[in-house]
């Protein structure tokens, strides 16, 4: 039975159970199992099916006692969705901002071509409409394009994530 206790200690250590708590649990278990042995009581009577699964027994005990965090699956639903939602919002905003910048550059190109082919007087109203505060700096064009690609990739990844998650919810958890 010392093997059982050792396995429990290892599991508590692995799970990050504070040493004093783990020592207390191990001492209680050791004393109880010794008494059971003296009285001729099988360990299964004391430990139930946990006698055959020391790590599972140790983890369940520690979790119920509240000395290790609950599994992620039991967290509040809002906490589970916060990160994907934040990622999706970031991707959409990035793509929209970058698309606006790329369109602004495109508008500047159109004005430039028109200006080269026409007298200034005819083009100025169009230039005023497209760039009321002046044309964007040419050096930012590659940045805008990269941000657009990153934003679109983020939106695609988000869509894949949602599709896979809804597919899993539809089929339910797989039996282990």
């Amino acid at each position: 039975m010392s093997d059982f206790l050792e396995a429990c200690r290892r599991e508590w250590k692995r799970l990050g159970v504070p040493d004093p708590v783990a020592a207390e649990m191990a001492a209680d278990l050791e004393a109880d199992l010794a008494q059971a042995r003296e009285e001729g009581v099988a360990a299964e009577e004391v430990l139930g099916s946990g006698a055959f699964d020391p790590p599972g027994f140790a983890a369940t005990w520690a979790r119920e006692r509240g000395v290790i965090p609950a599994p992620a699956a039991s967290r509040h639903p809002a906490a589970r969705w916060a990160v994907p939602l934040a990622f999706a919002a970031f991707a959409i905003l990035t793509a929209l901002g970058a698309a606006a910048a790329v369109l602004a550059f495109h508008g500047a190109d159109v004005v430039g071509v028109a200006r080269a082919a026409s007298p200034h007087r005819l083009v100025s109203p169009l230039r005023d409409f497209t760039h009321p505060v002046g044309p964007p700096a040419e050096g930012l064009r590659p940045v805008a394009v990269v941000l657009l690609v990153v934003g679109l990739a983020g939106i695609a990844l988000t869509a894949i994530f949602w599709l896979r998650r809804s597919d899993r919810s539809w089929r339910g958890p797989r039996a282990s």
Binding site: D28, A31, D32, A36, V46, G48, S49, F57, T60, W61
Partner: peptide, 24 residues
């Protein structure tokens, strides 16, 4: 204490506590 609880349950005919253990 823990083992004594198990023993008293057993004395009342409640020996197998759900195939599990009282510790959790």
């Amino acid at each position: 204490y823990g083992y004594e609880l198990t023993r008293r349950l057993r004395e009342r005919g409640l020996s197998m506590v759900g195939g599990g253990s009282i510790y959790p």
